[in-house]
């Protein structure tokens, strides 16, 4: 009797976690489709997806209820919560360097200066690249100092 009750409690708790995680995943996916600009999409989905995957995996660990599986699940969750912001930062940095357009309602007052500086750097690098090509006739080294 008691064993069966514990099994049922485990299943119900696992179900609740999995449903919450799936709902977060669905909401972040709809956000990925609906939002108007790259940066808003990025900031909407990074947390939603990592939180959803974390909840689903936690439900899995609670359902099996064994130490080694729980250890693997915690390892995956830690890894996701470390790597998701790093990947988001790298991708959005790429978007900034590539002049990906902002939404037209975005308030860019504090960012314009930096954008101009990036643009000037790009032109400068390009000029230097050309000069090196003229003098050495060998294109080398200009792309490294980003």
């Amino acid at each position: 009797m008691g064993v069966i009750e514990v099994e049922q409690i485990k299943e119900v708790v696992s179900c609740v976690f999995i449903l919450a995680g799936v709902i977060f995943m669905l909401i972040s996916t709809i956000g990925l489709l609906r939002f108007p600009d790259f940066y808003i999409r990025m900031s909407a989905i990074t947390k939603g997806a990592s939180l959803g995957v974390g909840l689903i995996l936690l439900g899995l660990g609670i359902y099996f209820n064994q130490p080694d599986i729980m250890l693997k699940v915690l390892a995956i969750i830690t890894f996701i919560f470390i790597t998701a912001p790093v990947a988001a930062h790298v991708i959005s940095r790429t978007a900034v360097r590539n002049h990906s357009p902002f939404w037209n309602k975005t308030n860019l007052k504090e960012f314009e200066e930096y954008q101009e500086k990036l643009h000037l750097d790009k032109i400068k690098n390009h000029d230097r690249y050309r000069e090196e090509q003229k003098t050495e006739k060998k294109p080398s080294g200009a792309g490294d100092n980003v």
Partner: peptide, 24 residues
């Protein structure tokens, strides 16, 4: 990382001299 994981904010770029962090 923490700024990125808090929803609503996304750290975009760090300036060259590491004094300013640009946050969306």
């Amino acid at each position: 990382c923490m700024i990125t994981l808090t929803p609503g904010t996304l750290s975009i770029d760090v300036s060259e001299n590491r004094k300013i962090l640009y946050v969306h």
